[in-house]
């Protein structure tokens, strides 16, 4: 029924004043303070010459610790519990972003195997006419990362390293997002 199909609305930039519409009081808190196993995932959003991007948004979407999604269509996820799985962090003056969350469990790869723990990430900013999409993996999941189908499909370790957050020594994970340049983050089309 191709003739019934509607054409998608085009994307536009969030512009420089996105904080007016996109600020949530607890946007960075995927889990509340004091939750068991809570950790911060953080880093900087950087442009093509390594300058911070202070007017961006990093949104994260992930499964819970059991690998289940709190999804609207319950048959695709657990649809229950207090874990929402969604985070939103507006970048600060030095490009800093961060969400407090828990490391997700492994998620089915749809072919009988598992994907390594990961977050799906959307990045918006002034100067980005469309969101860019990446994933965040975890540096202390070496075994799971080694067999992850998405990481395995990347050409080399340099590419993989742009998606793997390092243990930060403070119970959290750190990963800079580089929109452009020699160490440009691997971005995806979904």
């Amino acid at each position: 029924m191709t003739s019934d199909r509607l054409l998608s609305s085009p994307s536009q930039t969030v512009g420089p004043f996105l904080s007016i519409g996109m600020t949530w009081s607890d946007g960075e808190q995927v889990v509340p303070e004091g939750s068991p196993d809570a950790c911060w995932i953080h880093g900087r959003l950087l442009d093509g010459v390594g300058e911070p991007v202070p007017d961006g948004v990093v949104e994260t979407w992930q499964a819970d610790q059991n690998g289940e999604f709190a999804h609207a269509q319950s048959r695709l996820g657990s649809g229950s519990g207090s874990f929402g799985g969604f985070g939103r962090s507006l970048s600060g003056p030095d490009g800093q972003y961060g969400v407090r969350t828990v490391k997700p469990g492994s998620v089915s790869d749809g072919a009988g195997g598992l994907q390594a723990p990961h977050l799906d990430v959307s990045v918006f900013a002034r100067g980005l006419l469309h969101r860019v999409v990446m994933r965040i993996y975890f540096g202390d999941e070496e075994q799971a990362n080694a067999t992850d189908p998405v990481l395995s499909a990347l050409p080399d370790d340099a590419a993989r390293s742009t998606l793997i957050a390092a243990v930060d020594g403070d119970g959290g994970y750190a990963l800079d997002i580089r929109l452009q340049g020699a160490h440009e983050t691997v971005f995806f089309t979904v």
Partner: peptide, 25 residues
């Protein structure tokens, strides 16, 4: 502003699995 912020490498195709076809409430 797109000149220093637009990624220049060809994006990698990400197959749509559970993470991609679910979304927040």
């Amino acid at each position: 502003s797109t000149r220093l912020r637009a990624p220049l490498r060809t994006p990698v195709d990400l197959p749509q699995r559970l993470t991609e076809v679910t979304g927040p409430v």
